[in-house]
Design a protein around this nucleic acid. Structure first.
Lengths: 148, 148
DNA sequence: ATATAATAATTTAACATTAAAGTATCCAAA
DNA sequence: TTTGGATACTTTAATGTTAAATTATTATAT
């Protein structure tokens, strides 16, 4: 947002890169979300179904860790997906505190049908960059993502 | 999230860059938000104060456009900042449908005190990249942000 | 064995977010 | 000038989000 913060060259360079990075992410997320909007899924619901598809059944606390969301939030997203019978809660085999969240057949079918268009959408959007540029972007953002 | 989507080389390259991009943004936002958490401001509240500081008083619809949020959302963020007397609503001079949002003296003082640490935080985080890498990142994300 | 601490999920309260509907005002064409 | 459409903001309903408190269970230390 701060397009005209008065700073030295280092600050301006950092802020400009930061702003472009945030806007690119906003733009990508906005366009990608069109793919599941028709299925009346929110971004969080889609992310949870995707996570369960690729990584299998897991506990809510594990979903929270992978999705970087709070536990209370995960409970609500599970609730709303469970209402639509896309996921189900099962008691944990050995720990009575815990439960296991898994895709139902309907949930599995839905997310499997949504993934190919989603991947194609991301691929299309990233196609404004060359293969080499994508590798560069990956490396630069990889380092930023783990920066202190 | 999909670290192991089975696709061709182009898809894998696009997805890897996409995932790193999203994670870098999440990471940057999470760390930057620590700067205003102590002032009990949310990210949206901080963004609105910042927008008003650098771009001056404006209408809610203009704030919505610049912050890329819905009008209904802007109304609520204004409400919550107004309760704390950090911003104020003033009737528009010539259009009785419209209002002008501006910083109060307290709001101006608060956001001015928060900006230098915020900029320093962003600069520090971006400092894992060289000046040239920052320019590259800016150019690549600039193109992604406007991609169709 | 029992008390204490840690873990797992949920609930609650406050704020965020969007879409859609509602209200008031402005503008322009007939 | 009046009617219709566009604009500006607000309200409402549903979901998301976090932090903090709550409940239940497990694990650990004495």
């Amino acid at each position: 947002m701060p397009t005209k913060y008065p700073g030295d060259a280092d600050e301006v360079r950092a802020l400009n890169a930061y702003i472009c990075l945030l806007r690119a992410t906003e733009s990508l997320l906005a366009r990608s979300s069109q793919n599941f909007r028709g299925s009346k899924l929110t971004a969080s619901q889609f992310a949870m179904l995707e996570c369960l598809l690729f990584q299998g059944p897991m506990k809510p606390s594990e979903l929270a860790g992978k999705m970087l969301k709070s536990g209370g939030n995960i409970t609500m997203v599970i609730d709303n997906l469970e209402k639509r019978k896309l996921v189900q809660r099962t008691p944990h085999a050995s720990d009575r505190r815990a439960i296991i969240i898994s895709l139902t057949a309907a949930g599995n079918k839905l997310i499997e049908s949504l993934m190919p268009p989603q991947v194609a959408c991301i691929k299309d959007q990233m196609a404004v960059l060359t293969a080499g540029e994508l590798e560069t972007l990956r490396e630069l953002t990889r380092r930023l993502g783990t920066a202190q």
